[in-house]
Simulated scan of single mutants.
Amino acid sequence: MTTRLQWLSLQIVRRLWFRATAFSVMAVVTALLAAFVTPYIPADIPAKIGSDAVDALLGIIAASMLSVTIFSLSTLVSAYASATSHATPRATRLL
């Protein structure tokens, strides 16, 4: 049996704005942490890695993210279209 506080916190955590806010807070914390960790990172790291390697990694990550986004969006549109044509308006709202 869940209490009202547990139910309310579960409802808040499931909201889209909560996730976006959580990621934003984590980004700010990471940026602040980077400012404090910078003195402990060796100065020759940028010379060892090189911009070509970073460019290739960013290209791979961008392509992967684009593929996942297109797949997710097409699945969402397909599910919504199916729900609007075969289900009641209440079921569409739940989706």
Rank of each mutant, 00 (worst) to 15 (best):
T88M: 00
S51G: 12
D44F: 07
S72W: 02
A20D: 04
R14W: 04
F71N: 03
W17E: 06
A34L: 10
L95I: 00
A79N: 08
L16I: 12
G59L: 05
T88K: 01
I49S: 02
S82L: 02
L94T: 04
M26F: 03
T84W: 10
S74R: 05
V37H: 00
V13Q: 10
S9Q: 11
Q6R: 11
Y40S: 12
T69H: 01
W7G: 08
T88R: 02
T2E: 12
I45V: 15
A53H: 08
R14K: 09
Q6E: 14
F23K: 07
A43N: 07
M1E: 14
T2L: 15
R4D: 06
T75V: 13
A87N: 05
F36P: 03
L94N: 11
F18S: 06
P39A: 01
T30N: 07
R90E: 13
A35W: 07
V25W: 04
V13E: 06
A63D: 12
A47E: 15
I41V: 15
I61M: 08
A31L: 15
A43G: 03
I61A: 10
F36G: 13
S72Y: 04
Q11W: 09
G59V: 02
L76K: 08
A91W: 00
A34K: 04
K48L: 15
V13R: 15
L5T: 11
R93D: 07
R15Q: 08
